Measured scan of single mutants.
Amino acid sequence: QTVHVKGVQYHFPNPEEAVKFALKVAKDLGGRVEFHGDEIHVE
Rank of each mutant, 00 (worst) to 15 (best):
P15I: 15
G30R: 07
Q9E: 10
V25Y: 06
G31F: 11
A22F: 02
H36L: 10
V33K: 00
L29N: 06
V5P: 01
E17F: 05
E39A: 11
E34H: 14
E34S: 12
E39Y: 07
K24V: 07
H11D: 06
V42G: 01
I40V: 04
L23C: 14
D38C: 15
H11Q: 08
V33S: 01
G31P: 00
D38T: 12
V3K: 00
V25F: 05
E39M: 08
V3R: 01
L29F: 09
K20Y: 07
E43Q: 11
H11A: 06
N14G: 06
V19T: 07
F35V: 09
H36K: 11
T2Q: 04
G30M: 07
E39K: 06
K6L: 14
Y10L: 05
T2I: 12
F21M: 03
V19Y: 15
Q1I: 15
V8F: 09
V8E: 08
V25Q: 08
V25R: 05
V8H: 09
G37W: 06
H36R: 13
N14F: 05
A26S: 04
T2V: 13
G37V: 06
R32V: 11
A22I: 03
N14M: 04
E39R: 07
H4Y: 14
E34M: 13
V25D: 00
I40K: 01
V33E: 00
Q1P: 09
L29C: 14
V42F: 03
T2W: 10
V33Q: 01
D28E: 14
G30T: 04
P15A: 13
E16I: 10
H41E: 03
N14E: 06
Y10G: 01
V25G: 00
G31N: 03
V42L: 03
E34P: 00
Q9T: 14
F21I: 03
V8L: 10
K27V: 08
D38Y: 10
V8T: 08
I40Y: 04
D28R: 13
E17R: 04
A22S: 02
G31C: 13
E17A: 10
V8K: 12
A26W: 03
F12R: 00
P13K: 13
K27R: 11
E34W: 14
F35Y: 11
